[in-house]
Amino acid sequence: MIEGFVALYIFMLAAFTGYEVISRVPVILHTPLMSGSNFVHGIVLVGAMVALGKADPGSSLELAIGFIGVILAAGNVVGGYVVTERMLEMFKSSKKNK
């Protein structure tokens, strides 16, 4: 596993990054940004795939839970992307339009 303290450093730096990156977001983008960050944690699909991929093929319980996990994670990724993209696509400036 990633060495204890290295993991802690990654954790700390990522937390500050997350905080900084959106610290000046205007209210008009709250909803899309929430949806966008919702998409980003869809990376859980990668973990769900590994969990299912390394599950013991003999244990139907592990397989069942892993299977459900991958379904849910895939829903998170695709749903999050589709919805965010639809919202952001609509944001237009009047200057570009005219």
Binding site: M1, I2, A7, I10, F11, A14, A15, F16, T17, G18, Y19, V21, I22, S23, V25, H30, L33, M34, S37, N38, V40, H41, I43, V44, V46, G47, V50, A51
Partner: peptide, 29 residues
């Protein structure tokens, strides 16, 4: 945050970083 924790379990840096970033950004939001 949950994703970040499971990332630690699975040794998956992408999950740790993405999860933590969302955890922090989400808290601020």
């Amino acid at each position: 945050l949950a994703v970040a924790f499971e990332g630690l379990v699975l040794d998956n840096a992408a999950m740790i970083i993405a999860g933590t970033v969302v955890g922090a950004a989400g808290t601020l939001l």
